[in-house]
Design a protein around this nucleic acid. Structure first.
Length: 120
DNA sequence: ATGCTGACTATGT
DNA sequence: TACATAGCCAGCA
């Protein structure tokens, strides 16, 4: 047990979440639940949203590539510009939206190689 | 301690 | 298709 043990468990979870999001390639998206699963946190999709909301503007994590299970950009409670920025960034990397405003996940969902499965 | 809230999701009506 | 509800759980008053 070294000095690293003092890091709160929640911080560790967040790092795992960020590590997964960082792997999502351009032009692809992942759902909150998918990220949670890959991060070894099954069923904790909300924690993924919480972790992403905590990112600061200088972060290089591609947070915009995470959308909800319906292929939609989740509305922010505060109604800020984040959602619009997300839409812009995705469109910029050629992620398409259907006429119903949903991203066809069967086409743009990130499918990591089976060899990558977060940490067990 | 206790209760609310939120960038979620699966399920049911 | 559109709500409602039950799980989920960290952060904060």
């Amino acid at each position: 047990m070294g000095i690293l043990e003092v890091v709160p468990a929640r911080a560790v979870s967040r790092q795992r979440i960020y590590a997964v999001v960082a792997r999502i390639p351009r032009g692809r998206v992942a759902t909150y639940g998918q990220v949670a699963l890959l991060a070894g946190l099954p069923g904790q999709a909300r924690q993924v949203g919480y972790a992403l909301a905590a990112l600061d503007d200088s972060s290089r994590i591609p947070w915009h590539r995470v959308v909800n299970a319906q292929g939609r950009i989740s509305a922010r409670r505060d109604g800020g510009p984040a959602a619009r920025v997300q839409h812009l960034l995705l469109a910029r990397e050629r992620v398409g939206f259907g006429s119903d405003g949903r991203i066809p996940l069967e086409r743009f969902r990130w499918r990591p190689r089976a060899s990558f499965r977060g940490r067990p």
